[in-house]
């Protein structure tokens, strides 16, 4: 299982990549692995807004449903429509092709409590 060091993580198993004023959000390798084969994903519309710790979408496998919780608040500047048609990308490349949304960072405070790769890895080991 991979935990890229350049990403930040949430306890709800999302990852965040910060580039300038933009945060890219997806779900972690661990999340896709526990869900199993993803068959459906629901994302917010481009131009909409998301709120920290609130659901912004849904991922489903054959036998599980999981809400996607936003790691930060802000406007959605881009949505990865490709994964809506090919949700299997979430299993195949969770940190790459299967990014979900890009959010314009409103406040850096939002990012302050996110976990580092090491912290996240420790967290899931404890959760098991």
């Amino acid at each position: 299982m991979e935990f890229p060091k350049d990403l930040k993580y949430t306890k709800e198993h999302e990852w965040v990549k910060v580039e300038g004023n933009t945060a890219t959000v997806g779900i972690t390798d661990y999340a896709q692995d526990s869900l199993g084969d993803v068959v459906y994903v629901e994302l917010p519309p481009e131009g909409g807004s998301v709120t920290k710790n609130e659901p912004f979408g849904v991922v489903e496998s054959v036998k599980a449903v999981s809400d996607l919780y936003s790691p930060l608040s802000g406007n959605v500047t881009e949505v990865n429509d490709a994964i809506i048609d090919s949700p299997e990308a979430i299993n195949e490349d969770p940190y790459g092709d299967a990014w979900m949304i890009k959010v314009e960072i409103g406040s850096d405070d939002d990012l302050a409590d996110l976990l580092t790769a090491d912290e996240y890895q420790k967290f899931i080991e404890e959760e098991k």
Partner: peptide
């Protein structure tokens, strides 16, 4: 049975 395919 391939249930994933049935859903995808």
């Amino acid at each position: 049975v391939d249930e994933t395919r049935a859903a995808r």
